[in-house]
């Protein structure tokens, strides 16, 4: 779980490097849940300067390469304007991920709970 924002904290990077190391050792990463300010990682509109790191794009690329399930908390994302207006209005429905980067989807906390039950370890970054 990534729970801190990419502009001020290192959580999204730490989780990314940890996931890479775990995958390289043959472990399975069943889901990455982006919560609180961590939802900004999945924002498509986020455009860091070209000569700076872009951790959202890095997660997108890793998801495409490894088939990762990247889930942005729908309520936390709507609260922060990361989901588009339509999705923000209708939290009870599966939102169209138009405002999210490729590989990210929006879903509820049930997905986090499910991961906590299914995975051998849940690590909060």
């Amino acid at each position: 779980m990534v729970s801190e924002g990419p502009a001020q904290r290192q959580s999204a990077e730490s989780a990314y490097h940890f996931a890479q190391a775990a995958l390289a050792k043959g472990h399975e990463v069943i889901r990455v849940f982006f919560y609180h300010d961590g939802v900004h990682v999945g924002a498509r509109a986020s455009t860091p300067p070209q000569d700076e790191r872009n951790i959202g794009a890095q997660w997108s690329a890793l998801a495409a390469e490894q088939g990762l399930d990247l889930v942005v908390c729908v309520a936390a994302a709507a609260r922060r304007g990361v989901l588009d207006e339509e999705a923000g209005r209708r939290l009870d429905q599966a939102p169209a991920p138009g405002s999210l980067l490729p590989g990210f989807r929006a879903a509820g906390l049930g997905q986090l709970i499910e991961s906590g039950i299914d995975a051998d370890r849940l690590i909060v970054f």
Binding site: F18, A21, K25, H27, I123, V124
Partner: peptide, 17 residues
């Protein structure tokens, strides 16, 4: 290193932040 981080997460039965 990060490999060691992964090993620690396996060796201990739970992880808290």
């Amino acid at each position: 290193d990060y490999d060691g981080f992964v090993e620690l997460a396996i060796e201990y039965d739970s992880v808290t932040t």
